[in-house]
């Protein structure tokens, strides 16, 4: 198995060294660089092109989310995990829109970080269980309180399949080849799904999937 090269970005050096110790204990993981602020993160990512970037949101000079947007804009192959104090879905959505695929809370980073790195490195999305739970609960409460119909019921079996795969982080092309469909068909499914669920773009689709418990 190929080694996963990791860039750590956090303005707290204690945090960085703690994470480095944690990650380097894992076989197949290697921390290739550390950055102490957003600007440095961008520079390091440019310089080292890591497989996975683990980044804090609250950082001086350039905040984590803006740094991620800059990096994934140029290097979409770099998988990004946000490591944050914030549990609100506003931040999660913002992180996803910036191009992150994983979102971890700092309450228990070490428990989930290994799994998260592997998941995003495989092209999947990953969220702290606490976040998934919160999103799912909010969604259920929303449904219960308003008594509205579950929009998930509106989707066809094939659309659910496509939704699932897209939410996992797969591209249209990947979905097309797995399901043995044309790219055009997958794109049509995708836009139908977004319309039926009243969503705008993949980040919202991923959040929706987490809420529904389709992925975790």
């Amino acid at each position: 198995m190929q080694e996963i090269r990791i860039l750590l970005a956090d303005d707290h050096s204690v945090m960085r060294s703690g994470l480095r110790v944690l990650l380097e204990r894992q076989p197949g993981f290697r921390v290739i660089a550390e950055a102490a602020d957003g600007r440095e993160t961008v520079d390091m990512a440019e310089a080292h092109l890591p497989d996975v970037l683990v980044v804090d949101i609250a950082m001086p000079r350039l905040n984590g989310i803006d740094a991620v947007r800059e990096i994934t804009g140029k290097h979409p192959k770099i998988a990004v995990i946000i490591l944050s104090m914030h549990s609100d879905e506003g931040y999660v959505l913002r992180a996803l829109k910036a191009g992150a695929r994983g979102y971890l809370l700092k309450d228990s980073p070490e428990a989930d970080l290994i799994g998260a790195i592997r998941a995003v490195h495989d092209g999947k999305a990953f969220f702290s269980p606490a976040i998934s739970k919160m999103l799912a609960e909010d969604y259920l409460r929303h449904l219960r309180q308003r008594g509205g119909e579950d929009t998930y019921e509106l989707l066809t079996a094939r659309e659910r399949e496509v939704l699932h795969m897209l939410a996992e982080g797969r591209s249209n092309k990947e979905v097309a080849s797995i399901l043995n469909l044309s790219l055009y068909t997958v794109e049509t499914h995708r836009s139908n799904i977004l319309q039926k669920l009243n969503l705008k773009g993949t980040p919202e689709l991923i959040l929706y999937a987490v809420r529904k418990g389709v992925i975790s």
């Binding site: 945090m15 944690l22 700092k106």
Partner: peptide
């Protein structure tokens, strides 16, 4: 948020490493 919380998070990670 940024100081106390982050330090505590670092503590969490550090303690985890210590346990390991």
């Amino acid at each position: 948020h940024d100081e106390v919380g982050q330090s505590l998070s670092a503590l969490v990670v550090g303690l985890g490493n210590l346990a390991a």
